[in-house]
Amino acid sequence: MLNTLIFGFAVSLIIALILGPVIIRELKKFHARQSERAEGPESHKYKAGTPTMGGILILAALVVSCLVFNPMDLRKGLALFLTLGHGVIGFLDDGIKAVKRRNLGLTAKQKLLGQFIMAAVFCFILKEFLQFPTTLWIPFTSWNIDLGFFYYVFVFIMIVGTSNAVNLTDGLDGLAAGSCAITSVAYVVISVALGYSNFAIFSAALTGACLGFLFYNQHPAKMFMGDTGSLALGGALAAMAILTKTELLLIIAGGLYVIEALSVIIQVVSFKTRGVRVFKMSPIHHHFELSGWSEVKVVTVFWSFSAMMAIFAIVVVLSTK
């Protein structure tokens, strides 16, 4: 099993490293270039023109590795479905931006509609084909609460929330790719520990794909993942948590994405109700940038936090499941 995980990781990593220059060249031809928002940090203006939609690289490496190693089963296929489905939504968003040469692709309502459809289909397959248990494990305990129909409501919200949270995290060179690689490593361990060895290949392949992409996305980035990558990674993380029956554990393992999303919610609510901004800019990684931290320092600290939360999540599973 260990050999399979290593090979799955290695194949995904190598594919991403090899295809990177090709993807960058083709994205430049397609004029899929980053447009920095006017209200963004001044230090980011130089990034305008950098190829985006690089999430295609992550998805290509992930799919090939998952298909080559281990027999495909419904659990792994369902994770790929949710990941690729969100990748398609992001691809449409990025594609419109490239064609229209503007910073606005799909509207917020159009994105949400796509995410709702993906979540609904995912829940339908869980119920009708996987006969998925509707129990929810409470971390730090041995309790499993049966939510019945409301479990699918919870999963629905979880998928939409996670995909948007990772999308918000993708704002600095290497931040989303690196943190998602770290979280994926945690789910390799968690999947094996809980007896989902065949599914662990998905997490291992995702880790390799993220690290391969990170080679081209580290500061200064030669390519950005765009919504193609960030929405897809959010879908992948949600799938890993749901399909290993560790749904609430994602709050710990993915603590960074939770904080990023909360910072936006707090900022919006505070400004609309009190006219006061809690942070200099949200998501919170921009707050630290405007507080004088370099982009590399913010990313390094956030990766470290993500690693600590991933280790904590593994410890919780090994000690209570």
Rank of each mutant, 00 (worst) to 15 (best):
F156A: 08
G90N: 01
M223F: 12
T300D: 02
S263M: 08
F7I: 13
V296E: 13
V317K: 06
F312E: 03
V301C: 08
D94T: 11
I6F: 15
M225V: 13
A119V: 05
F150I: 10
I182D: 00
A61V: 08
V166L: 15
L233I: 05
L27R: 02
A261M: 15
L175R: 03
S184L: 09
V64L: 14
G161R: 07
T141M: 01
V192R: 08
S270Y: 05
R102M: 15
T4I: 07
L92S: 01
Q110A: 09
Y187D: 04
L2Y: 13
A119R: 03
N217K: 05
R101H: 14
A108E: 14
G8S: 12
T135D: 14
F154E: 05
G212M: 08
G90A: 02
S179N: 04
F124Y: 14
G55W: 08
I145C: 00
S270Q: 09
S142N: 14
V64C: 11
T207N: 07
A204C: 09
L290W: 11
I145R: 06
L249I: 06
A205F: 12
K272L: 12
L318A: 06
F199N: 13
L2D: 02
T162D: 03
G54Q: 06
L19A: 14
I24L: 11
K245R: 15
L112Q: 10
Y187N: 01
A232H: 09
V278G: 11
G235F: 04
I145E: 02
L233D: 00
L126N: 02
S12W: 06
R33K: 06
T244E: 08
D146M: 04
M309K: 00
L74R: 12
A204Y: 03
F271D: 13
V63R: 05
P71T: 00
A239T: 01
D93M: 09
F81K: 02
S263C: 04
V11Y: 10
G20I: 11
D73Y: 07
L59T: 07
G85Q: 13
S294G: 15
I14R: 10
T300N: 02
L92A: 06
A98C: 10
F305K: 00
A48C: 13
L5F: 03
R37N: 00
P21V: 12
S203P: 08
A200N: 01
I242W: 07
M281S: 09
K245A: 08
P220V: 07
L194R: 10
S304R: 01
T50H: 00
L243H: 14
D73W: 12
L290G: 10
S65D: 05
E39Y: 07
S291T: 09
M240W: 12
V317L: 08
L62W: 02
S65L: 01
